[in-house]
């Protein structure tokens, strides 16, 4: 388990998610693929936190407590991204329901409002 391997796994999950985003017709399935994208990004953030030192640690000079804590910035970002993703999925589902109510469909190919 090296940084490269973890990032590769993250990349694979991202690619799978991207495939889903591009090819799925059902908006709910599309939303699921989006969540996969989020997860891939979070894995990458945590992997960096685990395997790479913060800038203050890598340079010369005394090591301070803040520099040590900064090594976990990736974890913090992971938590923030997960929170935003949760909010996003709630909103996306609301949109899907609104779409379903308005058009009686959840197929994204049936929606081309952006054309206008």
């Amino acid at each position: 388990m090296t940084l490269e391997n973890v990032l590769l796994v993250s990349g694979i999950i991202f690619a799978i998610g991207l495939y889903g985003v591009l090819s799925r017709r059902s908006t709910i399935a599309l939303l699921m693929s989006l969540e996969l994208l989020f997860n891939a990004v979070v894995i990458a953030a945590v992997a960096f936190s685990r395997f790479t030192p913060s800038a203050g640690l890598a340079d010369a000079g005394a090591v301070t407590a803040n520099e040590v804590r900064a090594a976990l910035t990736g974890h913090v970002f992971a938590v923030l991204v997960i929170s935003v993703a949760a909010a996003e999925s709630a909103l996306a589902l609301a949109l899907i329901f609104a779409l379903y109510r308005a058009k009686e469909t959840v197929e994204i190919t049936d929606v081309s409002e952006m054309k206008r």
């Binding site: 699921m32 997860n39 979070v42 945590v46 992997a47 974890h75 992971a78 589902l93």
Partner: peptide, 26 residues
């Protein structure tokens, strides 16, 4: 994977938010 990367807190949040909330919502 999070747990294996020494990120226990993120792992727990993942289970709580994603598995517990988002999946169920979907």
């Amino acid at each position: 994977i999070f747990f294996l990367l020494n990120a226990e807190f993120v792992g727990v949040v993942q289970i709580l938010v994603y598995v517990g909330a988002v999946s169920i919502l979907i």
